[in-house]
Computed example of a mutant assay.
Amino acid sequence: MSNYNREELFLLNNVLLALFLVADFALFLHFSNSSFPWFALLGAGIGLAIIVLCWAEKVQIYFIASLLVFTGLFLLIYNWHSIFH
């Protein structure tokens, strides 16, 4: 396996890890509360992004960006009915 392939798999794993972390936490919040606590998901996403940014600096920039994008996406998905109705 070439170095390029390893780098591509590393970036793909970063994006998928961010997706699964946010999706699982959002699903947990959805099932454990009667109304979706959007502020908890937003705080957890931003907080984890800040922690990773402080520890790993720019090495994990794809993970941080994906984490913030998926946090916003899942906020819209689970609050769709309260935002637009």
Results as ranks from 00 to 15, higher is better:
39 F>W: 15
71 T>F: 05
28 F>Q: 10
36 F>N: 02
39 F>V: 13
18 A>G: 07
13 N>Y: 06
71 T>A: 02
71 T>S: 08
41 L>F: 06
36 F>H: 00
84 F>R: 05
58 K>R: 14
9 L>S: 12
47 G>A: 07
10 F>G: 02
73 L>A: 14
4 Y>V: 13
68 L>P: 01
53 L>R: 09
59 V>E: 15
38 W>F: 08
44 A>N: 06
47 G>V: 09
65 A>T: 14
18 A>M: 06
74 F>R: 01
70 F>D: 00
83 I>H: 01
74 F>Q: 01
11 L>Y: 07
42 L>N: 08
58 K>C: 05
74 F>W: 08
47 G>N: 07
72 G>L: 04
1 M>A: 15
17 L>M: 12
66 S>Q: 05
65 A>W: 03
34 S>W: 09
41 L>Q: 06
74 F>V: 03
52 V>D: 03
37 P>I: 08
17 L>A: 13
7 E>I: 12
41 L>H: 06
79 N>R: 02
56 A>C: 05
51 I>V: 14
34 S>Q: 12
27 L>C: 09
19 L>C: 04
13 N>V: 06
13 N>L: 12
41 L>M: 06
21 L>A: 11
81 H>Y: 06
59 V>F: 11
48 L>T: 11
34 S>C: 04
27 L>N: 12
17 L>R: 01
7 E>C: 05
36 F>V: 03
37 P>G: 06
12 L>E: 10
59 V>N: 09
33 N>H: 15
61 I>M: 14
71 T>W: 00
